[in-house]
């Protein structure tokens, strides 16, 4: 009887050890597959509402900074529509835009400028290797704050000193849509003004003039 109990006890201990080993093995497999919790989701291409700090038709802040070549530049925004592309050298979603912005695919008359963080956050040599000669790069951390940029890539269309549109775009199609919407919206405003008999030189557009 004692022998039978001893055998059962040994078998029970062996089973406990076996189950513990299996559980440990399972835990190790899970650990190697990834962290606990739901798997990270990659952002899908999308446009977002402008951040609350900067709305469409808000004044477009001037931008001053350095270029990767060591030049200095200050941009003030007049009649030439300008697409500001806020990009980072280390951002994977930005990667395609460094080239595509220099390919002349934007609407005629629209110029583009890449705005990166300042020299404290970006390496000039890295930017020189990414940038095309046809698209100027301005390094300016204050510009990111002035335009309330939530992250890169981020795009702002400015014209006549005002913001015409802005948003996130992670693909060329999304960017084209963003630019197209902003241009269409402005065209609609111009058409409504023209229908009301208000043209570019109409006195009502210049309050205070002639006083």
């Amino acid at each position: 009887m004692v022998a039978l109990v001893s055998i059962e006890t040994v078998l029970l201990v062996l089973m406990v050890v076996l189950v513990a080993a299996l559980l440990r093995s399972h835990a190790e497999i899970l650990r190697r597959l990834g962290p606990e919790g739901p798997a990270p989701r990659l952002p899908e291409p999308r446009l977002t509402e402008p951040p609350p700090g900067l709305r469409a038709d808000a004044a477009a802040p001037e931008i001053a900074g350095a270029t990767p070549d060591g030049d200095a530049i200050k941009l003030a925004f007049g009649g030439t529509p300008t697409l500001l592309a806020f990009l980072s050298s280390g951002c994977t979603s930005c990667a395609g835009f460094w080239d595509v912005l220099g390919e002349g695919r934007l609407p005629h008359g629209l110029q583009s400028v890449i705005v990166t963080r300042g020299p404290d956050r970006e390496q000039r040599s890295k930017l020189r290797s990414l940038a095309l000669p046809s698209v100027p790069v301005v390094m300016s951390s204050p510009a990111w704050e002035d335009y309330a940029v939530p992250g890169s890539p981020y795009f702002v269309l400015v014209e006549e000193g005002t913001v015409r549109g802005e948003g996130v775009a992670t693909t060329w199609d999304a960017l084209a849509s963003l630019v197209g919407d902003a241009i269409e919206e402005q065209r609609g405003v111009d058409e409504r003004l023209a229908a009301a008999g208000i043209g570019p030189e109409h006195p009502s557009l210049y309050p205070g003039a002639g006083e």
């Binding site: 060591g70 200050k74 003030a76």
Partner: peptide, 19 residues
């Protein structure tokens, strides 16, 4: 704006560059 041994102050509304 300061670069390449030149320095200038530009008022609001002015654009510029040193290259």
């Amino acid at each position: 704006l300061e670069a390449h041994g030149l320095r200038v102050e530009l008022p609001r509304g002015w654009s510029g560059r040193i290259f």
